[in-house]
Each structure stands twice: as structure tokens, then as C-alpha cells.
Amino acid sequence: MTRVCFELQIAPDLVDEYVARHSPVHPEMLAEIAASGRRNYSLFLGEGGRLIGYYETDDDAAAQAYLAASPVAARWEAEMSRFFVGLDGRPDQAATPLTEVFHLADQIARTQPS
């Protein structure tokens, strides 16, 4: 399993509308996210429109490719693209990935005898 964390910046004046658009997300888009193989997907909103996303997947490249080819995801991302600052391309394909530097379960596992 791969854990993926990413960062995006929402235009501060559009934060309330962005949150409203996710309450709830269209059922068709939820189904596409699940069908892509992404699970345990969360978005966290920080001050000034800083958005952190997290999901788990068995094959991130396959999940990305699935969503890139999905007409449902293309429509959703086209609608959502206006919310983001400094983004070149579709939000789901152009988010800045973050590097994992600590994971509790991995470190505990390393301390256990094999």
C-alpha cells in the first residue's frame, strides 16, 4: 500500500464555496474515486486556503491514469479548477506531492524482531 499526501492552494475568497462543493461531492465522482483504487481519502483545510489531501492506494500510477481517463473526473476537475491558485493543469493531476518523513506503524515495525 502507498500513502499519498498532497498540497494545493485554494483562492482565499473561494474557500467557503469550495467547502460547500464538497458537502457532499457528487455520487458519480465518489464512485470514480473508489473505482480508481483510492481509499481512506481525506482533505484538510488550513488557514488562508491551504489544502492538504491524503489517500491510500495499491497502485498510485494506475489510480492517476484511471482518473485522468475518466469523463466524470474530467468534468469535476474542470468545475473545480477555478478554486486553485498557481496550478498548471487539472487539480487531481497537478497537486504538489509531499514527502513522508515519519509513519508510526512503519517505525514500530522496524523495532520489532523479525
Results as ranks from 00 to 15, higher is better:
residue 2 T to F: 15
residue 3 R to M: 08
residue 4 V to M: 09
residue 4 V to S: 08
residue 4 V to T: 12
residue 5 C to K: 02
residue 6 F to P: 00
residue 6 F to H: 03
residue 6 F to V: 06
residue 6 F to M: 07
residue 6 F to E: 00
residue 7 E to R: 15
residue 7 E to D: 01
residue 7 E to I: 15
residue 7 E to W: 15
residue 8 L to K: 01
residue 8 L to M: 10
residue 9 Q to V: 14
residue 9 Q to H: 13
residue 10 I to S: 03
residue 10 I to C: 05
residue 12 P to E: 04
residue 13 D to C: 04
residue 14 L to M: 14
residue 14 L to Y: 01
residue 16 D to E: 12
residue 17 E to D: 09
residue 17 E to S: 14
residue 18 Y to A: 05
residue 19 V to S: 01
residue 19 V to P: 02
residue 19 V to Y: 02
residue 21 R to A: 11
residue 21 R to C: 14
residue 22 H to K: 12
residue 24 P to V: 10
residue 25 V to I: 15
residue 25 V to F: 06
residue 25 V to D: 01
residue 26 H to G: 06
residue 27 P to M: 07
residue 27 P to W: 13
residue 28 E to F: 11
residue 29 M to Q: 11
residue 30 L to N: 07
residue 30 L to M: 14
residue 31 A to C: 04
residue 31 A to H: 09
residue 31 A to K: 14
residue 32 E to F: 13
residue 34 A to R: 15
residue 36 S to A: 15
residue 39 R to W: 03
residue 39 R to G: 12
residue 40 N to H: 07
residue 40 N to T: 06
residue 41 Y to V: 10
residue 42 S to T: 09
residue 42 S to M: 03
residue 43 L to K: 05
residue 44 F to K: 00
residue 45 L to I: 13
residue 46 G to F: 11
residue 46 G to H: 06
residue 47 E to H: 14
residue 48 G to P: 08
residue 48 G to D: 07
residue 49 G to L: 10
residue 50 R to G: 12
residue 50 R to E: 08
residue 52 I to G: 00
residue 52 I to A: 03
residue 53 G to E: 10
residue 55 Y to R: 01
residue 56 E to K: 07
residue 57 T to V: 11
residue 57 T to P: 10
residue 58 D to N: 08
residue 58 D to C: 09
residue 59 D to I: 13
residue 60 D to P: 03
residue 60 D to R: 05
residue 61 A to M: 08
residue 62 A to H: 04
residue 62 A to L: 08
residue 63 A to V: 12
residue 63 A to N: 02
residue 63 A to D: 02
residue 64 Q to W: 04
residue 65 A to P: 01
residue 65 A to H: 04
residue 67 L to C: 12
residue 67 L to E: 02
residue 68 A to K: 04
residue 68 A to N: 03
residue 68 A to C: 03
residue 69 A to E: 06
residue 69 A to Y: 08
residue 69 A to M: 04
residue 70 S to A: 07
residue 70 S to Q: 10
residue 72 V to F: 12
residue 73 A to M: 12
residue 73 A to K: 08
residue 75 R to K: 13
residue 76 W to E: 05
residue 76 W to D: 07
residue 77 E to F: 08
residue 78 A to F: 02
residue 78 A to R: 13
residue 80 M to K: 02
residue 81 S to V: 08
residue 81 S to C: 07
residue 83 F to E: 01
residue 84 F to P: 08
residue 84 F to L: 05
residue 87 L to K: 00
residue 88 D to G: 02
residue 89 G to E: 04
residue 89 G to S: 07
residue 90 R to H: 07
residue 91 P to Y: 04
residue 92 D to V: 09
residue 92 D to F: 09
residue 94 A to H: 01
residue 94 A to M: 09
residue 96 T to Q: 12
residue 97 P to C: 05
residue 97 P to S: 03
residue 97 P to W: 04
residue 98 L to A: 01
residue 98 L to P: 01
residue 98 L to V: 00
residue 98 L to R: 01
residue 99 T to K: 07
residue 99 T to C: 12
residue 101 V to E: 00
residue 101 V to C: 08
residue 102 F to D: 00
residue 102 F to K: 00
residue 102 F to V: 14
residue 105 A to H: 02
residue 105 A to F: 13
residue 105 A to Q: 02
residue 106 D to W: 04
residue 106 D to C: 10
residue 107 Q to Y: 11
residue 107 Q to D: 11
residue 108 I to R: 00
residue 109 A to V: 06
residue 110 R to W: 14
residue 110 R to T: 10
residue 110 R to L: 15
residue 111 T to K: 08
residue 113 P to R: 13
residue 113 P to E: 12
residue 113 P to C: 12
residue 114 S to F: 14
residue 114 S to K: 14
residue 114 S to P: 13
